[in-house]
Amino acid sequence: MPAPQCASCHKARAALRRPRSGQALCGSCFCAAFEAEVLHTVVAGRLLPPGAVVAVGASGGKDSTVLAHVLRELAPRLGISLHLVAVDEGIGGYRDAALAAVRRQAARWELPLTVVAYADLFGGWTMDAVARSTAGSGRSRACCTFCGVLRRRALEEGARLVGATHVVTGHNADDMAETVLMNFLRGDAGRLARGGGLGSPGEGGALPRCRPLQLASQKEVVLYAHFRRLDYFSEECVYAPEAFRGHARDLLKMLEAARPSAVLDLVHSAERLALAPTARPPPPGACSRCGALASRALCQACALLDGLNRGRPRLAIGKGRRGLDEEGPPREPQPSRPLTSEPVPDF
């Protein structure tokens, strides 16, 4: 069975079937459509106004590689400038190779790059050190929880450092749908309600964040990278196999096989969710230590670091966090520096 003609140009042979519409397109018509859709997401959602200095969270992986490439194509039309910000989590053997990919991209696309390291931002804590501290009795599952919170903070710090007005990340529709499933399965109503929309407007002094690829499927992100011959890093993080997300991903893939629209349907479901008044969390305040947006006395990043410095890393996760306020000062005299405006190395 030969591939049909491209449904757009009617000249070339089609190279893929689009997951949502089933439309068969050739490689170049698909890439043009993909870029036009990201442009539409950004413009219709008013995500990045003209003049914006945009920090692109760059990991070297497929999503951020595609995001940076597409935004670079669109930057003249949007009137924005881009700055890659990469985070070095301190994961031996994994992050070094990924950062090398980011450096190659920055050089090839002539984009400025700044790397911020956990070790510099978080009082010497690298992810490898966190993993050692949480190792044993199944606690290493928590690695991705720590890393997610710390990476978000590190990206914010890096973006401020380069004078960015906006932060963008490469999350795609599949990532968002997995997160929706995970929040449901954990009964995390607060996150479910906050997770909708294409980003956050920047409450409490945080930079506005958005996800321009949020409506693009994983398959299309990967095929865009393929047809545009983009070079990206594709090894799995050494800590990821233990994460809960893997189960959500498998479940989502099964649902998608039975119902191709399941991924986007989940994303849209989350956007439409509204919490009953009694379930609404209190309005967020400021972290008493670093000033970042927080729903408790300490923001999540400071709470996690506090638990680590006390030698009780689980305290800050889930319900254990309630015990934090009653605890005394840290037992271990770990070097603990405030998180704000630390000088970090610029590469």
Partner: peptide, 13 residues
Amino acid sequence: LVLVNDADWELLG
């Protein structure tokens, strides 16, 4: 994903 001669296998059976 499976591509045969750079075309999505979903188009090819």
